[in-house]
Design a protein around this nucleic acid. Sequence first.
DNA 1: GCCAACGTTGGC
DNA 2: GCCAACGTTGGC
Length: 152
Amino acid sequence: MKSEPDVFGLDDLVNAVNKTTTWEGVRNYEARNFMRDQMKVGDGILFYHSNSKPPHVAGTATVASKSYPDPSQFDPSSDYFDKKATKDAPIWYLVDVKYESTFPEPIVRAILQDDPICGEMMLFKRNRLSITPVTSEEWLAVHQLAGVKPKR
DNA sequence: GCCAACGTTGGC
DNA sequence: GCCAACGTTGGC
């Protein structure tokens, strides 16, 4: 899952109540579908800092809830308000995300891309998607680059 | 700051 | 339903 560190970085997740946040504001159908249909409580998340120099994976988090309607779509004062959405027919979904770990060193994008396994991640194929799936093989390979034993 | 990729909007 | 215009993301 991508986030701009200037807006909400891994450190902000560490400092959040219960080290948990609602991943609100995703307004792309494909990214929504990954949260709504594929994420399960306890799944691992690579926390990626986009728009940073250089972009990198900062650490990990976990999926902390089932998917549910993103409340911001109903809030007229929110930037993420969607007037087409109703409580009966929500459009946008999210999951709660809980902090898990910070890598000893950030894994920068270029290093990931050069790795034979990590270089195949959907991250590199769908540059503008803010959420992309990671295979268990890729998950292990990222942890190997980080020099960290994966928790799952 | 530039620009490629690409999703969305709206006229027809 | 098509497609041009436009806006956004995000790497470089």
